[in-house]
């Protein structure tokens, strides 16, 4: 499936788990590791390692994707700085991906509404809601910052929760009648999900401005309005069309 001149590098550095993917229409290589707070020291060496392991050079990269958050502000800035510099130095398109979109993406197959969330530290999470609209999936909610125990509040119909939880938090949410909790490995952000979302936009001719693209900063207790989006690929919808 992959073609030369189609190599996309994707980065997510907004959490302790750093995700890096190489993608050209199918997954070439993925790396997911626990960086703790050592993002600046570790991300670029790992990018180089992933390229080398897959017999690619940085010069082969023809598009760069980066998550825009929500997440740790400093963590996000590491990925954003690297991605922007890659895009500038290689003169290739830059694509920002909302971290929540990538988390929601694989669950569109189930057909239930999705609430994707990331940890915002100090017992808080930031979430957005995704629902089916015809054959497509849309995010049209605010990004909201709530306490983790408020995450399922207001859910009436069965909804998939997509995001990483501690065992304790999982117990808390399992009792909720409207909550569907997929297995942990399906709720943890995978590098290729980011790459695939960005790849679709890139092949559609889209790109984000290298100078001014910036992370989404959601403060504790706050809410950010992010323009509504239609998830670029719902594989259920696509299989129905093609």
């Amino acid at each position: 499936m992959g073609q030369s001149g189609q190599l996309l590098l994707a980065l997510e550095t907004g959490g302790e788990q750093v995700a890096i993917a190489l993608y050209d229409g199918s997954v070439i290589g993925e790396l997911l590791y626990d960086a703790g707070r050592e993002h600046t020291a570790t991300v670029l060496p790992r990018v180089r390692e992933l390229l080398t392991d897959n017999r690619r050079s940085i010069r082969d990269v023809s598009a760069v994707a980066v998550t825009m958050g929500p997440g740790s502000f400093n963590g996000l800035r590491v990925g954003m700085s690297i991605a922007k510099a890659l895009s500038y130095a290689l003169d290739v398109p830059l694509l920002g991906v909302l971290t929540l979109d990538a988390l929601a993406y694989p669950h569109t197959a189930l057909g239930y509404p999705i609430r994707a969330f990331v940890s915002a530290g100090r017992g808080r999470v930031v979430y957005a809601d995704y629902r089916r609209q015809g054959v497509a999936w849309v995010r049209d909610s605010f990004l909201r910052s709530v306490r983790i125990d408020e995450l399922a509040e207001g859910l009436i119909s069965p909804t998939v929760l997509a995001g990483t939880l501690s065992t304790e938090q999982e117990q808390l949410l399992r009792g909720h009648p409207a909550v569907i909790l997929p297995p942990p490995s399906l709720r943890q952000l995978r590098p290729a999900w980011i790459a695939e979302l960005a790849f679709h936009r890139w092949r559609a001719g889209e790109a984000d401005p290298v100078a001014t693209l910036e992370p989404v900063y959601v403060h504790g207790g706050g809410a950010e309005m992010i323009p509504p989006v239609q998830l670029p690929v719902s594989y259920e919808a696509r299989s129905g069309q093609e």
Partner: peptide, 19 residues
Amino acid sequence: LAGSLLVGVNVAKTLAFVW
């Protein structure tokens, strides 16, 4: 400031890597 320094350091490392 750590959050400020990291922007320059990550950009500089990336440019040095590519170039």
